[in-house]
Design a protein around this nucleic acid. Structure first.
Length: 458
RNA sequence: GGACCCGUAGUGUAGUCCGGUUUAACACGUCUCCCUGUCACGGAGAAGAUCGUCGGUUCAAAUCCGAUCGGGUCCGCCA
């Protein structure tokens, strides 16, 4: 018999059906046992005589055959999409048994600490509220892709093994690449710029790696970067225009397609259509000073506390929790960032804050070859390290710029999650790659290169 | 790298401040039994923790002190 999805049983009244799934819960009433069967479409109640359901426990994987019956009016469960029907079982096949779970998966809230949540990731992901996080994230990425394509952008796949550190030294993962050093990419920056020289408008959904020795609620060592870069901009503000369209379209898609998920988290989508305020860093700091008396007016960036404050300001005064902060100091931005012609101490760059956290960063890039050479040197880089990349500029590059969205960060802010790691399927941080590193052997064996070097010294 | 906080059954917590009726409590889960209308089913019972580890103070330590290991939060840095 052909399996159908749980959700489809609602349309098969009085028909014989076969459904498959996991036992979400078992309610034993002696002579009769109710099983909630969960599959990818949802949950359906299965009614079993006790002799058929005797050995069945939570998370067992079953194939169930039975007749779809209408429930009596007073037995309807409005919480279930299949709540008006149930399956009167005639045959149960156990496809797989399951050990008893270390925590209660059927509670509406999964009450576990963060380390437990991640230690048991393969099964905590089965919880509806955890699943919802990734449904939302999938929609964000899908919407990003669709919107960029609609705007005429070309999708490419960025390499993640790179020969030089893109934007600075310390926070990269070095890898053993045959007999040479290579690095995991901190961002697809150089490659998306190279491809602007080919396709004008490009984007990628890629992974970025940061070896920052920081354990916070908003950092991952591996994260999903939604990267955009476009040529032939008239003004660097075009980038914020595109960014705003993109963000609003993503939000509008979430509003349409993730009603259930947003409701689970008690979150709503911000009002769209309102222009996102654009404040120079110094203006934002002035506002913060006026509002709180905190004088950070000479600092090169906003503190996390300031980021929350300025979003609060935007909410009160501009009716939005989104705000662009622009004109960061040159020394705070990478070498390729375009200096502000009016004041070269600052750059044509921006961050987009949402509910008190940076979710996007971007800006205009230096597209003039000579100027870029000068800036690489100024930032202490070696021109020869960037020779490959520099071809693009040597042989003609239009005025251009771009930005990048952190997929986990948007997910976290949209759903009001406490820790960014909750928004990553398998988060990597200083202390964890799937398992806690502290549970593994303390040190990796030395690499062949290291062993050779040591031998030489002996 | 800096600051602060936490560690008690499988999970989540109470008890720690102010050491002693604590045989370490509660909820969920687990196991046994009862129950044909539950949907976070209900009822009766049981098992499960030498209170992270080591050391110290004390007549007495989950409780106070120190070290150590594990974890979290904030800052710096950033998507």
């Amino acid at each position: 018999m052909q399996r159908i999805l749980n959700i489809e049983t609602a349309k098969k009244l009085n028909k014989k059906v076969k459904v498959c799934g996991w036992v979400n819960s078992r309610r034993d009433h002696g002579g009769i046992v109710f099983l909630d069967l969960r599959d990818r479409s949802g949950i359906v109640q299965v009614v079993c005589p006790s002799k058929l359901a005797k050995d069945i426990k939570d998370e067992y994987v079953l194939a169930v055959e039975g007749k779809v019956n209408k429930r009596p009016a007073d037995m309807i469960n409005p919480k279930l999409e299949t709540g008006k029907i149930e399956i009167q079982v005639s045959k149960i096949e156990i496809l797989a048994k399951a050990a008893s779970l270390p925590f209660d998966l059927r509670n509406q809230e999964l009450k576990v600490s963060l380390p437990t949540l991640l230690d048991y990731r393969p099964i905590t992901l089965r919880h509806p509220k955890i699943k919802a996080i990734f449904r939302v994230q999938e929609k964000i990425i899908e919407s990003f892709r669709k919107n960029m394509k609609d705007l005429g952008f070309f999708e490419f796949q960025a390499p993640t093994i790179v020969p030089v550190a893109t934007e600075g030294g310390a926070e990269v993962f070095r890898i053993d690449y045959f007999d040479y050093d290579a690095y995991l990419a901190q961002s697809p920056q150089l490659y998306k710029q190279i491809l602007v020289g080919v396709f004008e408008r490009v984007f990628t959904v890629t992974r970025a790696y940061r070896a920052e020795p920081s354990v916070t609620t908003r950092h991952l060592c591996e994260y999903i970067s939604l990267d955009v870069e476009m040529g032939f901009i008239d003004s660097w503000e075009d980038l914020m225009d595109i960014c705003q369209i993109l963000i609003y379209n993503i939000f509008s898609d979430l509003k349409k397609n993730c009603k259930k998920e947003l409701k689970i988290f008690g979150q709503s989508i911000p009002s769209l259509g309102i222009p996102i305020p654009r404040l120079k860093l110094r203006e934002a700091q002035e506002i913060i000073f006026e509002r709180t008396g905190r004088d950070n007016r000479r600092e090169a960036d906003l503190t996390p506390e300031d980021e929350k404050e300025i979003c609060q300001w935007a909410k009160e005064k501009k009716n939005t929790e989104l705000v662009f902060i622009t004109h960061f100091p040159s020394k705070k931005r990478p070498f390729y960032t375009y200096p502000d012609p009016e004041d070269p101490e600052y750059t044509l760059s921006f961050d987009l804050l949402y509910k008190g956290m940076e979710i996007v960063t971007g800006g205009q890039r230096i597209h003039e070859y000579e100027k870029l050479l000068k800036n690489i040197k100024k930032f202490g880089g070696k021109v020869k390290d960037f020779k490959f990349y520099l071809q693009t500029f040597k042989y003609g590059m239009p005025p251009e710029g771009g930005f990048a969205l952190g997929a986990e960060r948007i997910t976290k802010q949209v759903l009001g999650l406490k820790n960014l790691r909750e928004a990553s399927f398998f988060p990597r941080d200083m202390a964890r790659i799937d398992q806690r590193l502290s549970t593994l052997k303390p040190k990796n064996p030395p690499s062949p290169r290291l062993r050779r070097a040591r031998k030489k010294n002996d």
